[in-house]
Design a protein around this nucleic acid. Structure first.
Lengths: 240, 240
DNA sequence: CGATCCATTGAAGCCACTCAAGCCCGGTGG
DNA sequence: CCACCGGGCTTGAGTGGCTTCAATGGATCG
């Protein structure tokens, strides 16, 4: 990672940016902070599909939020398998696994054209000094990350791939809706189905077969890069 | 949970307590804090095996650290399965999944005679006001929890139960060694094997069979409530 | 000393993996 | 422009690991 080549001064408004929400919650907005002359967040990008944002073991000096695009974090297991630990959409915090050791535990890669907001720990310390409530904002957000990871682990333990996959799609639809504010039932898949397999701990073949089965049973419509959800996840018949 | 009946003033030293480590790291110790007249942590217990510390949905007003004993956190999935999200030994922080929503996401149950340290958010806010560095202590710890959860998720995706189980045992041995400071190779199992199954997403039958297989292959010695590790996890032959 | 929960072992079935082949698509270069 | 290539996706056949169902033994406890 050679951030120097990519550093772009923060210019456009981070309307969906988590950091902005933090600032607003303590009674500030980005403009005010800019006016104080303090550097707050830095917008970095674009990263292109397949490009690494950082690698496992790199020093972690900042927090990141996806500004636009999608990021995946992945690890190579000791026996060579590739495991994906998360997909991050616009507004999502990622890289928190590096906070403790000050080194990232995973690789982070853009899977489409992506910009991210960077908030360095140094800047954070300065800001938190002036606005102490910011700390509890971050603590709360980390709590949310933990609760999410636990929820993910839950669906991981469904041994039927049908359920894991429907759970994944339902979660993705939920998150897309959160961002669009629309009640759409269609997901634009930014990740490959192979990546979905790596995320769910399955093989691409099984994903393909299971999607076909779900389509035949009338739960989804599965086109090239889109999936339309026809029934709610909770109505899933395990026996199909 | 009826904490009022169990509240015991903090008396003995929390030598392994995470909170104490926080205080020490900002240049304090429990004695000094006690002298200021501030209530810091409250020691609660004993909880007996099978007793709930809190239930999913209960309001979360505090952070908890195991003082002595073992705690498990579990969730009932919508289809009735019981999933265990973690085992917590002396010194471990738990309940962090309740920070964001201010409600716990899981049930917490003692699996042996257990005491815990409670630090309420109110007390935390007071302390953090006087000693701002405490906040980053907690942030760092939450980062550790996140990194751990991600690591757990990794081993979850080993599809061979043999590997998941050996990984679990190796992790448990590592954590026991951390606490005892000894180079023992024996684990005293505080949880039932059924609980191990629920944690690993398997059935008790499979755990039983896999342990028998590992013993026959010379990797472990499996007695009633103890397991002795004979070989390192990394030397595990997948083909057994 | 019966009740209950945990643990173990056996037999049968099923789901997902492995191996293998072919298709589709975008990108590249002759 | 087309041939070639590579990666992702799909489909087929066979195998293996884990689950399910069932039954028994052991441990703890009121």
């Amino acid at each position: 990672m050679t951030p120097k080549l990519r550093l772009v001064k923060h210019r456009h408004r981070c309307t969906h940016c988590l950091f902005r929400r933090f600032f607003v919650n303590v009674g500030l907005n980005c403009d005010e902070i800019d006016q104080t002359g303090q550097t707050t967040t830095t917008n970095i990008g674009p990263y292109h599909p397949g490009e690494y944002l950082y690698r496992a073991g790199d020093p972690c000096n900042a927090l990141y939020v996806v500004h636009a695009g999608t990021v995946k974090t992945e690890t190579v297991t000791y026996d060579g398998d590739l495991h994906i630990s998360g997909f991050y959409l616009a507004g999502d915090l990622f890289g928190a696994d590096g906070i403790h050791q000050r080194r990232f535990a995973t690789d982070a890669m853009a899977i489409e054209k992506t910009w991210v907001c960077e908030l360095t720990f140094d800047n954070w310390a300065t800001l938190a000094n002036d606005y102490p409530d910011l700390q509890s904002q971050l603590i709360s957000e980390l709590g949310r990350v933990i609760a999410n990871k636990e929820h993910e682990a839950l669906s991981t333990h469904h041994h039927l791939l049908t359920q894991r996959l429907m759970g994944f799609l339902a979660d993705l639809l939920y998150r897309v809706r959160e961002r669009q504010g629309l009640q759409t039932n269609e997901i634009e898949l930014t990740m490959t189905k192979t990546d979905i397999a790596r995320y769910l701990g399955a093989t691409p073949e099984s994903i393909s077969r299971t999607l076909a089965k779900l389509e035949k049973a009338g739960y989804i419509v599965n086109t090239k890069r889109r999936i339309r959800i026809l029934k709610d996840y909770s109505s899933l018949d395990v026996a199909i």
